[in-house]
Amino acid sequence: MNSAREGFRPLTLLIFLAASLITFAICVAAGSVRIPPADIITIIWRSVRRMPAPADSAAYSILLSVRLPRVICVALTGAALSISGAAMQGLLRNPLADGSTLGVSSGASLGAVTAIAFGITIPGAPFAGTAVCAMASAFVSLTLILSLAYRLDFSLSTNTIILIGVIYSMFVSSIITFITILAADKVRQIAFWTMGSLSGSTYANARVLAVTLFVCGGVIMTRARELNAFAIGEDNARHIGVNVGRVKLIILITVSALIGVCVSIGGTIGFVGLVTPHMIRMITGPNHNRLLPACAFGGAVFLMLADLAARTVLNPLELPIGVVTSFTGAILFVYIFFKSRRNGHA
């Protein structure tokens, strides 16, 4: 029996890693303002050697303070959203599951808006209140949506979940509007927050994202075998000895944390978590041992490219990244859907 099959083959890993690094390099090199490649190398070299920044160099600031932290944040967000999408699609055996289709992203927004409207803050850490509320609300939403879905239809069929997700999103957006009206003095702040973007990302954002991704993504990856069992069917998972309740709880918490952090930093970005796992599954197959790490890379690449387009297509204007992801994501999704229909994949 070929025992190397289940894991991630070193060569595949290398290819994914290389693709991510190349995309990363392209995204750092290209941008709204053109910086010659030679200058880029000099700037990075100087900063690695901790040499003082040359006074009066706009390129230096643009590259190190604006572009680099943004590309890092975008890559981490893409990875986090794809991993959570893949985990939910496996857990619920539902190829349409994703933070946005399930209403988790809306739930996270609700938490953040509530925090802003009622001034919930954590002393000493401005804006942390928003992030924590977003995470908590994402978790409550996910639990609520799933328990409702289980009540209606124990098999958690695709239609039921998506229907509940859509209804929940609409319900939440009405609550958000209501809160906005109640907190009239915070209207502008809420409006700003809702259109939150990854522009202006800082290294501090990147650190928060990296730590969350490392911890939650790591926990999800240790549950790859259980996710495989869930992807075959929850009953089968129980029959072969998976602690279904506990695994479900672990996945729900980690996914909520990932989505909550992403939403509180970059706003809701659709389609990444939905489309990337489908594309990756076409390469690696459905086994989560390979799918999850590949999704981390694939999601990072997808979102970095989407962000590159957002930054450069209408230069000097900037497009909201969600416009790019929804546009390309929807087209890709239709393509994948038809292709997999023809091949008999779900």
């Binding site: 303002v33 600031s61 572009r67 001034g119 803050t121 202006g200 204007l317």
Partner: peptide, 29 residues
């Protein structure tokens, strides 16, 4: 750019304005 528009932060750094006027409001946080 015409009218109100979302622009790239890189462009602001590149165009290096002598004055900046913000109409932002202070939210107390």
């Amino acid at each position: 750019v015409s009218g109100w528009a979302e622009i790239s932060e890189e462009q602001v750094l590149d165009r290096n304005p002598d004055y900046i006027v913000t109409v932002g409001m202070y939210f107390g946080e």
